[in-house]
Amino acid sequence: MTHAKTTYQFEDLLDKHQLKKTAPRLRVLSMMYSKNTATSQPDLESVMHDIDRVTLYRILNVFEEKGIIHKVFDLNGTANYAICHSNCGAHKHHDEHVHFNCTNCKNVYCLNELTLPALNLPGGFKAEGFTLYASGLCSKCSKKAN
């Protein structure tokens, strides 16, 4: 995929969510889509030196509110962000999948391909979403350990 086509797709995504197409928003989307792991705000700050901390915080916040990204916590309790599926919307996330925390490299992976069991709650309870965490060695770290 060419850079121009990627930028065009990110602009469409921002249009879909009624967000202005700013250079910082497009850069954050590009960075997040290029990773196969969730990423934290400090990690983004370390590679996006021209976007200040407050602007980055606001971008992540509005992306989460609009259903573009979702928040997942790592083993240290640090918030990480990952791209949502297309069926997420404003204030309504549908990212009920396993989040895998690697105990070696500390990366957080969204395992979207795993089917989760039905959640049978007691009477009167109504789930609006849930998160399932697993921890251990990711495929890269597991290969290195062998």
Rank of each mutant, 00 (worst) to 15 (best):
M1W: 12
A4Q: 09
K5G: 01
T6S: 15
T7H: 10
T7P: 00
F10Y: 15
E11I: 12
E11W: 01
D12F: 11
L14T: 04
D15P: 01
D15V: 06
Q18N: 08
Q18Y: 04
K20F: 06
K20L: 12
K20R: 06
K21F: 01
T22M: 10
A23E: 15
A23W: 08
P24Y: 10
R25G: 03
R27S: 15
M31G: 00
M32R: 00
M32W: 00
M32F: 00
Y33S: 12
S34F: 00
K35G: 03
N36H: 13
A38V: 05
S40T: 04
Q41E: 14
P42E: 03
D43T: 08
E45A: 03
V47L: 12
V47E: 11
M48Y: 02
H49S: 11
D50R: 13
R53N: 13
V54G: 08
L56V: 02
L56H: 05
L56R: 08
L56Y: 05
Y57A: 14
R58Q: 14
I59L: 09
L60Y: 05
N61V: 05
N61M: 15
N61R: 15
V62Q: 11
V62P: 07
E65P: 04
E65A: 07
E65Y: 01
K66G: 02
K66Q: 14
I68G: 07
K71P: 09
F73R: 11
F73V: 06
G77F: 02
G77K: 00
A79F: 07
A79H: 03
N80R: 13
Y81I: 00
Y81N: 01
A82P: 03
A82W: 08
A82K: 09
H85D: 12
C88G: 10
G89F: 00
A90H: 08
A90V: 08
A90Y: 13
H91N: 08
K92R: 13
H93V: 05
D95Y: 06
V98S: 09
H99E: 11
F100L: 09
F100C: 05
N101S: 10
N101A: 04
N101Q: 09
N104Q: 12
C105A: 09
C105T: 04
K106H: 09
Y109H: 15
L111R: 12
T115C: 08
L119K: 03
N120P: 07
L121G: 00
L121M: 03
P122Q: 11
G124K: 08
G124L: 02
F125I: 07
F125P: 02
K126H: 12
A127M: 04
A127G: 02
E128H: 12
E128F: 10
T131G: 14
Y133N: 13
S135I: 04
S135V: 06
G136K: 06
G136S: 07
L137S: 12
C138L: 03
S139Q: 04
S139G: 00
S139V: 02
K140G: 04
C141Y: 03
K143E: 12
K143C: 04
A145P: 06
N146V: 14
